[in-house]
């Protein structure tokens, strides 16, 4: 079957009609999926494309969310104006998180260090109550876009969808360009890439900053969606969630990130549907991830790629 890549435009158009058929609960779940799509896409840049085992993602997420929350509550800015600053704060955190990688820390060392970085940020949210509300949490006012309040989940959905489509397309273009190919070269063989004249240091910095920017925007959306931020939201459980999204979806694949976030966010809600399973969510979640890794080590995107080659990620233009 020969398909044109422009079919990818069908998906956002199809989901445009979702609010017609969903109630506010399901719509909320869809909005949460949109948030986690950005989280997955951003995380995948560092882990999937650059091939680094860096868990600092949850720090970017928290920083984006708190940046948005603090700007709206302390400075009274409308939410839509805080989205880009939240992304920039995330990017800044990304630059900071790239320092160990630039110093040559790799593999497990990098993983442990970035985990510690995330936990350190959580400690910081608790210890700066003047800004973040401390352990009592920060209540974020209802998000506004151009003076228009996003009162229901349906309103939030359209705004989120717009942001997600823009960011995902931009990321996709970037990854298909020279920059994306440089990331791949570094992932495959860092020394060879350096020998070919690719300035690996710069690309490390760029990848981390880019990842921080995308995830920071996701964090800003999370703040708008949830409305109450507390430091415990950004703990190691969140790391597991992010990691599961990209691994279940497929490393280094945009479609994978999207599929992963859909699956990982929807699974708890499916379990919730069966009331007799109440309290079993954790072990079911764990077991499902084990099963996916054992039987689909390249994630769901590899399954799609088998169905049709159009779902394969393309890093060059033909």
């Amino acid at each position: 079957m020969k398909l044109n890549r422009s079919i990818f435009w069908i998906f956002p158009l199809l989901v445009l009609a979702l609010p017609l058929v969903l109630n506010q609960y399901l719509q909320y779940v869809v909005n949460l999926i949109l948030v986690y799509i950005l989280v997955g896409v951003g995380f995948n840049i560092v882990v999937g494309n650059l091939g680094q085992l860096a868990f600092s993602n949850v720090a970017f997420f928290g920083i984006g969310a708190y940046a948005s929350g603090i700007l709206t509550t302390q400075l009274g800015m409308p939410w839509w104006l805080t989205v880009i600053p939240a992304g920039l704060c995330g990017a800044l955190a990304g630059c900071a998180a790239s320092i160990p990688a630039l110093r040559g820390v790799r593999l497990f060392y990098l993983a442990i260090m970035t985990l510690a970085f995330g936990e350190l940020m959580r400690w910081l949210y608790i210890r700066t109550p003047g800004l973040t509300g401390g352990s009592m949490g920060l209540t974020v006012p209802e998000p506004a876009v151009f003076g228009w309040m996003l009162t229901t989940e349906y309103h939030k959905f359209y705004v989120f969808l717009f942001i997600v489509v823009v960011v995902v397309i931009a990321t996709s273009r970037l990854l298909e360009s020279r920059i994306g190919r440089a990331f791949l070269a570094i992932k495959n063989d860092e020394n060879a890439a350096a020998a070919m004249g690719i300035p690996t240091g710069q690309y490390f910095l760029l990848a981390f900053a880019l990842s921080g920017f995308v995830v920071g925007i996701g964090g800003s959306m999370y703040a708008a969606l949830v409305g109450h931020l507390s430091p415990e939201d950004f703990d190691l459980i969140q790391v597991i969630l992010h990691f599961a999204i990209i691994m279940v979806g497929g490393l280094g694949s945009l479609i994978g990130s999207i599929l992963g976030s859909i699956l990982i966010t929807a699974t708890p809600e499916v379990i919730r549907h069966f009331e007799w399973l109440v309290g079993s969510e954790e072990w079911i979640f764990g077991v499902s991830i084990i099963v996916v890794i054992l039987f689909l080590p390249r994630g769901l995107s590899s399954l799609l790629a088998k169905v049709n080659s159009i779902f394969k990620d393309r890093y060059y233009r033909n």
């Binding site: 085992l53 497990f108 079911i284 054992l294 080590p297």
Partner: peptide, 26 residues
């Protein structure tokens, strides 16, 4: 999965831990 990428190993270990915790908690 030992021959696979390090990432799968890391997530596998995490997922096993998570499942163990879930069973104990339940």
């Amino acid at each position: 999965i030992l021959k696979g990428p390090h990432l799968s190993l890391a997530l596998m270990a995490i997922a096993i831990g998570y499942a163990v915790r879930g069973v104990i908690r339940k």
